[in-house]
């Protein structure tokens, strides 16, 4: 790409904070099984065909690869809030998952300080349980101790605003409105202090007042934690929360720099404010 403006990393000043995440020439490749046939995965004949073909030429033909991230390098430091931007399918979420250690890298390495964690406990929560029990379950799933959960329980419930309209926390989560459930999930997920926090479009949930509260919560987490990564299509929330932005396009790192500069280029690229 001719107009790549990626700058070389500035020489480390003596006062530069310690690095928390180092990506070293990272490539990520997805393997999709059962793709690439016209009939798709569902058809039994297609599955049979795949097996037969594999037998004949001795290699896996039903597997397609998707090169999601190409040769991305960056160093994130303590105290930074880094936005990840790019058009749909540019590899932002994939890169985030790899930083979290939840996806393998094809080439290169990702080094991290401690265990970076994705914000979100949705998968650990159960709709049939009460909000109260979900707070405990979610906290334990994130690795908090029982004492920590007890200590922060009130805070989590107050922040979610679930009890503002009556005693909803003692009702099963399936009775919540989608907004209420999203607020409780965010409140649980952000209750833990993280060394490196990874947020994927989490700010889009809840009503306007809750969005404001979650933005300030992110700022708090950022002050207490090491580093925050934020994936978002909302340019305003990137501007409000991040001081550095990585711009990915087609899996390549197109630009890495201060928020204002990168966002200006990005908006020129996408054609106006998104």
């Amino acid at each position: 790409m001719a107009d790549t403006l990626t700058r070389t990393e500035p020489p480390e000043a003596k006062t530069a904070p310690a690095p928390t995440v180092i990506a070293d020439a990272v490539d990520i490749v997805y393997r999709v099984h059962g793709a690439g046939t016209a009939t798709g995965r569902g058809a039994a004949t297609a599955a049979l065909g795949r097996i037969l073909r594999r037998h004949r030429d001795g290699q896996e033909r039903g597997v397609r690869t998707v090169h999601a991230v190409r040769n991305v390098s960056f160093t994130a430091r303590r105290g930074e809030a880094i936005g990840l931007i790019g058009t749909n399918g540019s590899g932002k979420s994939t890169l985030l998952k790899a930083v979290a250690g939840l996806l393998p890298v094809e080439r290169g390495r990702i080094y991290t300080d401690g265990q970076p964690s994705l914000l979100g406990v949705n998968a650990a929560l159960m709709n049939d349980l009460t909000g109260e029990r979900n707070v405990h379950l979610g906290g334990l799933a994130m690795g908090m101790s029982r004492a920590q959960i007890r200590e922060r329980y009130r805070q989590i419930v107050d922040f979610s605003g679930i009890d503002d309209k009556g005693d909803f926390i003692s009702l099963p989560m399936r009775t919540y409105s989608s907004g209420m459930a999203a607020r409780l999930r965010f409140a649980i997920g952000s209750a833990k202090d993280h060394d490196v926090l990874l947020i994927d479009e989490a700010l889009a949930t809840g009503d306007r007042s809750f969005q404001k509260r979650s933005e300030s919560r992110i700022r708090e987490l950022r002050e207490r934690a090491g580093t925050v990564f934020l994936v978002s299509h909302n340019n305003k929330s990137i501007r409000d929360t991040c001081d550095r932005v990585l711009w990915l396009e087609h899996g390549e790192l197109r630009l890495d720099g201060p928020t204002a500069e990168v966002m200006r280029e990005y908006e020129r690229f996408t054609g106006g404010r998104a």
Binding site: P19, V21, A98, G101, L103, P104, I110, Y111, D113
Partner: peptide, 12 residues
């Protein structure tokens, strides 16, 4: 750089 700051490989 990673080794100097005690960083570890993610997901090992």
């Amino acid at each position: 750089l990673a080794a100097r700051h005690g960083l570890t490989v993610s997901g090992a």
